[in-house]
């Protein structure tokens, strides 16, 4: 069978080449290791995005003018809007869909459950409950998209409002006025921290990185998993307690 796929034996080189490439691709995703690598890569991409998102958001506390400037750039730059934004959405979808697929398969791998299972004896709560923390973060993402992304799309494309580079700071602070929304954001960030605590370092193991740098990656993961979500919590609380007075 293998020899039949050799281009030299087939008149239609291009077709066979594409075909074998596709079969390698589908073979990759079918394997448990490849699925974990996809999970790791999409996760790392989202970790990187989170750092970038935080960098911009913290300016809403430190320097509102800079926040307006950067937000306007992100909102109207073609590369960000039409290339990076779709890539980000794809990253979230891949991470989510693959996560659900893995979870379903894992459930099937132990169809009859233990009557007594002492999970805490050998693994952290974070590592055992990625699906729970992940789904909470996903639900939060729904609210977050409704709060900011839908609003942006409506403002820019549906209502076709003129560009206003000064509106972002006020709009953001206003969002954190309701107590319920601030609480939901804070809870979600705590769950995000738990998700990152295991996920970030775990992605390196999935990609085959387990060497002398692994303890440092673990430490960096723990710092990142605390600092970034805590920073987001700080921003939400800061705006909630410092509303713009009209």
């Amino acid at each position: 069978m293998q020899s039949l796929l050799k281009p030299s034996l087939c008149p239609n080189f291009a077709f066979i080449h594409i075909n074998s490439n596709l079969s390698i691709m589908s073979g990759l995703i079918k394997s448990s290791i490849a699925r974990k690598v996809v999970m790791a890569l999409s996760g790392l991409f989202l970790v990187f995005f989170l750092a970038q998102h935080f960098t911009i958001n913290i300016t809403s506390v430190l320097a509102p003018d800079t926040f307006n400037e950067w937000s306007h750039f992100m909102g109207y730059n073609g590369l960000v809007q039409f290339i990076l934004q779709p890539v980000l959405i794809a990253g979230v979808i891949v991470h989510f869909v693959m996560g659900i697929k893995l979870e379903l398969q894992n459930n099937k791998a132990r169809a009859i459950k233990y009557k007594k299972y002492n999970g805490s004896a050998n693994a952290s709560w974070m590592s055992r409950n990625m699906i729970i923390t992940g789904l909470v973060v996903l639900a939060f993402l729904g609210l977050h998209i409704y709060d900011f992304w839908i609003h942006e799309m409506t403002y820019k494309y549906l209502e076709a409002n003129p560009e206003d580079p000064t509106r972002y700071y006020a709009e953001t602070v206003e969002k954190f006025e309701p107590f319920w929304r601030t609480v939901l954001y804070v809870i979600s960030f705590v769950l995000l921290a738990l998700h990152l605590w295991h996920g970030f370092a775990s992605s390196f193991q999935s990609m085959g990185v387990n060497n002398k740098y692994s303890p440092s990656i673990r430490v960096f993961t723990q710092i990142y998993a605390i600092v970034i979500p805590l920073g987001f919590i700080f921003i939400a609380l800061y705006h909630h307690f410092n509303p713009i007075t009209h």
Binding site: Q105, A121, N122, A123, S127, M207, G208
Partner: peptide, 26 residues
């Protein structure tokens, strides 16, 4: 099932087989 790097296997292994092996296999 799929490995989610919880590390439970390494802890419970009577021979102390390390997670390093999983990374090597990956």
């Amino acid at each position: 099932g799929n490995c989610t790097n919880t590390g439970a296997c390494e802890i419970e292994c009577p021979k102390g087989i390390s997670l390093e092996n999983i990374a090597r296999m990956n």
